[in-house]
Structure formats: structure tokens, C-alpha cells
């Protein structure tokens, strides 16, 4: 339980770093361009596809982040041996329901594919945010594999009753 909360907290910090630091740097001849994850999100809105922009933002940033917060909120007090916070069950249920929609790890594979696509065209260097994001995915996968949802539900129920 403690381990999950720690991992969730680590992931949240990495997430913030991943969004704002430059993600990839592209160089062609003398020209260079740095993009952050934020630019990838707004890329669609520039071409008149604002709804898609919002959807991408939700899938790779907002949802994963909100899930981390919800999980930390639901499990944090229990890791310390306290009573669960009010609405902890609701927060955890929400985190479970949105799991298929948090697509950070898919985004990373997408980045890899995109890199191969443009290697012929230009030189691309991953920035600090890229590593933060990759670490984030790793931490999230670890966290999900440590977490047994049935145990969490059982503990939530027992602690809130006593």
C-alpha cells in the first residue's frame, strides 16, 4: 500500500516535469525547434481540430494525472494506517473506471514511431522531458502491477467500518 502511494506521488512529480520541459529537439541544417508535450497537444487545434486537441490532452495528461491524484487520495491515509478519507471509495472507483483511457504509455510508443519517421529528414534529440515521461510510464506500469484492486476494496471497506 505504501509502495503504491509512493509510486503515485513520484509519477505525479514526473508528470509535471514532462509537460513543461522541452520534449524533443529537431535540427535540420541550421534550423532547430524544441517542442514540449504541450505543443503536441496544441498541434491539432492549429489545424482546426480543437476537439481532437482536447481529447489528446485528456488522454495523455489530464486523465493520467487525475488518476494519480485520486489513487493517492484514496490510498494515502490507509498507507499511514488512518481511516480512509471521505469519498475515498468514489475516488478509487473513478480511477478504476478511467484506467483504459489513460494512454501515457501508448503516447511513448507513438513518440518512438514518430522519431523513426523523421530520422531521414532531420536530427532529433530527446530532451529532459522525454526521459521524465518514459520514467513516468515505467512507474505507472509498476504501480498498476503492485496494486491488487480486490485487496484495496477489502481494506477500504474494513477501515471505514471500524
Amino acid at each position: 500500500m505504501t509502495r503504491i502511494v509512493m509510486l503515485a506521488a513520484t509519477a505525479a512529480v514526473l508528470m509535471i516535469a514532462a509537460i513543461f520541459f522541452p520534449f524533443l529537439e529537431l535540427q535540420v541544417g541550421g534550423l532547430s525547434r524544441k517542442s514540449s508535450v504541450f505543443d503536441a497537444i496544441t498541434a491539432f487545434s492549429a489545424s482546426g481540430m480543437l476537439p481532437l486537441s482536447i481529447a489528446v490532452a485528456a488522454l495523455i495528461v489530464v486523465l493520467p494525472f487525475a488518476r494519480l491524484v485520486a489513487i493517492a487520495y484514496a490510498l494515502g491515509p490507509m498507507a499511514l494506517g488512518w481511516h480512509p478519507a471521505p469519498q475515498a471509495a468514489r475516488a478509487f472507483r473513478w480511477a478504476e473506471a478511467t484506467r483504459p483511457w489513460a494512454m501515457a504509455e501508448i503516447f511513448i510508443v507513438g513518440v518512438a514511431v514518430a522519431l523513426v519517421k523523421i530520422t531521414g529528414l532531420a536530427k532529433v534529440t530527446p530532451g529532459p522531458a522525454f526521459w521524465a515521461f518514459a520514467a513516468l510510464v515505467l512507474v505507472t506500469v509498476l504501480k498498476d502491477s503492485f496494486m491488487c484492486r480486490l485487496t484495496v476494496w477489502k481494506t477500504l471497506e474494513e477501515r471505514s467500518r471500524s
Binding site: A40, F44, A46, V111
Partner: peptide, 17 residues
Amino acid sequence: RWSMIDVFVVAILAALV
């Protein structure tokens, strides 16, 4: 959910290039 890869690839390329 893994089918979303291509959408993300497009987003990244459009942002970067």
C-alpha cells in the same frame, strides 16, 4: 487502446516538424 498510436504519432509530427 493501442490503436491510438497513430493519432499520437500525427500529433507529435505536427508539433515537431
